[in-house]
């Protein structure tokens, strides 16, 4: 199964607070791949809005995203989209 590990800079002005986290989870729900976000010493399921929000990710920090599954490439793009705030 394809696996992609990618470091990203959070440029979304809202970080990954409630609104962007909700957007992310909503978008990811359409995909099969498992998605993990690592920040600091924590790693959480990116499809859990509660887990993502409570990472407390603010603008300007670096996170690592680990995607594993057949649609991993599309998923990484979606994550990048939300994280960059585009």
């Amino acid at each position: 199964m394809p696996k992609i590990v990618k470091k990203m800079m959070v440029t979304n002005p809202e970080g990954l607070h409630a609104r962007p986290a909700s957007q992310l989870v909503k978008k990811l729900s359409k995909f099969k791949s498992s998605v993990i976000i690592k920040y600091g010493d924590k790693a959480v399921n990116a499809k859990s809005v509660l887990s993502v929000i409570t990472l407390g990710i603010d603008l300007g920090v670096e996170i690592e995203v680990i995607v594993e599954g057949d649609d991993a490439e599309d998923v990484i793009k979606v994550v990048e989209g939300v994280v960059s705030g585009e």
Partner: peptide, 16 residues
């Protein structure tokens, strides 16, 4: 709308 949407997502949350 956004708050209520957030609530629906909490109800679906796999971690929970």
């Amino acid at each position: 709308k956004e708050i209520l949407g957030f609530h629906t997502m909490i109800l679906d949350d796999p971690f929970l």
